[in-house]
Structure formats: C-alpha cells, structure tokens
Computed example of a mutant assay.
Amino acid sequence: MDYTIVAVVIFAVALLVFGGAFLIRPRRPQAPAEPGERPEGAAPSATAEPAEDEEAAAAADATAGASPAEAPPAAPEVETPPPSAGRLVRLRARLARSQNVFGQGLLSLLSADKLDDDSWEEIEDTLITADVGTTSAAQIVESLRTKVKVLGTRSPEEVRGLLRTELLAQLNPDLDRTVRTEGHSGTPSVLMVVGVNGTGKTTTSGKLARVLVGDGRSVVLGAADTFRAAAADQLETWGARVGAPVVRKDEGADPASVAYDAVSRGVADGADAVIIDTAGRLHTKVGLMDELGKVKRVIEKKSQVDEVLLVLDATTGQNGLRQARVFSEVVNVTGIVLTKLDGTAKGGIIIQVQRELGVPVKLVGLGEGPDDLAPFDPEAFVDAILDAA
C-alpha cells in the first residue's frame, strides 16, 4: 500500500473536521451599545446628530419640566388721584362726626330758654375747650351776646346763623390759602414740609404730591429726612403711585444736599413743583432748628422757596401752637397743615393758630386714606360743625 496516499487522505479528513467546527461555531452575543455609541463595525447613520446637538437636546429635556423663572416684579400702576377741588366737601361727613361735640354743645347752649351769665360763661368754656383760645372765645361770646340781646327771639335757624357768622369771622375767610405751585422763571415751585416728630410730615408730603398730580401738576419729591431710611422708602412708595420721582441719599447724608439735588432734578425735568420732606425735629432743640434753616438757605442757592408748610397734629392743642411759633421764627412758615382733624373735637386750634401767627391753615388731614388731605375751606368747615349738631 502506498503510505503517501493514506497520509494525504487522513490530513484532508482532519482538515475538513476541524474547519467545519470552526465555521459552525456559535456567534458570541454582542453587548448593547451605550446611548449615543455606534456599534463596532457599523456604518454611521445618515440621521445621527453631532454630540453637541445631543447635549443641547438633553439640556432642553432636563429643563422642560422645570418651573419657569419668576418674572421681575411689575412696576406699580400709576394712579390718577382726584383733583383738589371739592375734596373737603366730599370729606364733610367725616369732619362733621369729629366736631359733633363742639357744634352740638354750642347750639344747645345758645338755644336755651334763658341765657344768663352762667350760660354765657359755659359757652365761653366750650369754645376754650375746643382750643379756640381765650381771646377769640371772649370775642365770640361778646359779639353773640350783643346780637342775641338785639334780636330778642332766637329760633334754631337764627341761632345757627349767628354762630356761623361769628365762627367764620374768626377763621378769616379772606386769607389767601392757595398752595403756591405755579413755579417761576422756568424753575419749579419749591415746597418745604416741616414739623416735629410724629405729626405725619412724610405722609403729608406723599398726599400733597397726590393733590398736585390730581390737579395736573408734575412733581419731584426730595427725601431730606436722612435720619430715617424708612422715611425715604415711604416717600418712594408714595411717589411711585403717582409717577413722581424721588431724590434720596444714604442714611445720614446731609439733608441740605438732598434738598439741593431734588430742586436741581426738578429744574432738569421741567417739573411744576418740588416737595422737600424734612426730618422731624423738636422745636426746643436749637441745633436741629438751625439745621432746618440751613436746608432752606441751600435750596435758595438754586431756587426760591415758595412754601414752608408746618405740619401740626390737631390733637396737641396748645403745644402745637408753641411749635408753630418756634418754626415760624426759623423758616418763615407760610401755611399750616393740620393732621388728624377727623379724630378730635378741638378744631378750634385753626382759629387760634391763625390768630397768633397770622398764617393761614391751607390743608387739613381728615383720615388715613391716600386722598384724605384736602385744601381748607372755612365755610365747609363751619357748616360741617353746625350740621353735625
């Protein structure tokens, strides 16, 4: 036998056996590809996006369910306050309630069947209790006593008419109560608001801005009360409501500097009026009062001061009169603002302040509402007192 042929046959058979086993070997399963990873050997997909796009998409997906960022707070809506004309008439009922004791007491005493010396003394005491002042009370009683004697009979209508005439005469309705806001020579009218602590100067400044805006005036507010940051914040709130810009500086800054900058802003803006809110100060403190005089002098380097409005609390009575005297000596007060008149039966302070200082009451506060500051009208005031009785 040819061993060569046998060897070749055996080699061929072995080759077939091992080769077939290799060819039919089961294929090892391939691990799934990671997201974004192309399997080895696979052709790139025609629709595959760059990695940057995938990151952007992932970021978009991550924020899709997130709550949107809070929008910045909206600016307060600018209000249009009512005009000053007729304000006191609209607030007449509130004034009548507060002065009910005053008016009712006087009318009931004057309507008594018999008016002897004791009766007239009681009438005078009622007037003094209402802060009319001793001199004015004596004058009113003397005039009434003469007229009652002449008339003889006293019907309720006659008594009311007599008392109305006397009270009006003491209030001096002919005084000029105009708040000067016309400006002059291209510069705004400047109004300083002064007074002791707690009388409501900052609130009065804000309400006065509303009165002027309601009358069609443009206003700039100066936060010259630099001792209290809260005062400037409060003034900004008032200004924002009527669209009046506020000039302020850091707490502790020079009040005169703030006032000067406010007037400068008013000139630059072409405003009709600049209202300067000053810090409260004790009328007995000479240094503080001198500082108030400095504020006025510095303002006058830029523009004249048209109004110095002294804010008095109507409930303080005689103390309010003492305050008025000192302030008038330092800054030449041109008008009085009486606050809290709705909460007291002592409206006679109006008569006494005007008599002692020769300065008219120009504005009265009759509540805590934003539009409860009204130009003072003597006739409406007296009628409110007597209608309440």
Rank of each mutant, 00 (worst) to 15 (best):
I275M: 00
R210F: 10
V213F: 09
A259D: 06
Q234C: 15
E251V: 14
D225L: 01
K249Q: 15
Q234Y: 13
A273R: 04
L282V: 12
G266S: 07
F227K: 02
A262Y: 03
V213Y: 09
G266A: 01
G287W: 11
Y260A: 13
G266V: 07
T284K: 07
V247A: 08
A271I: 00
A253W: 03
R265I: 12
V220D: 14
D261M: 08
G239E: 08
I275N: 06
D277E: 05
T237M: 15
S257M: 08
Y260N: 09
V258I: 11
G243Y: 10
S218N: 12
G270M: 12
A224P: 04
G239N: 10
G280I: 06
G239W: 00
G270H: 11
Q234R: 14
D277P: 05
P255A: 11
A224R: 01
K249S: 14
A232F: 03
V219F: 01
V242N: 02
G222H: 10
A259N: 02
A209F: 02
V274K: 02
T226P: 02
R265L: 14
A231Y: 02
E251H: 14
F227Q: 00
D254N: 10
R248P: 00
D233S: 09
W238F: 11
T237V: 15
T226Y: 05
V242L: 05
V220Y: 14
R241W: 03
L235R: 03
D254F: 02
R241V: 02
L288T: 03
A262E: 05
F227N: 01
A224K: 03
E236H: 13
G252I: 07
V211Y: 08
A253H: 09
V213E: 07
T237S: 15
F227D: 00
H283W: 01
D261Q: 07
W238C: 02
D254R: 06
V242Q: 00
S257Q: 05
V267E: 13
I275W: 04
V274D: 05
V263N: 09
G280F: 08
A273P: 06
G280V: 11
A253K: 00
V247M: 08
A223I: 06
R281M: 01
G216L: 06
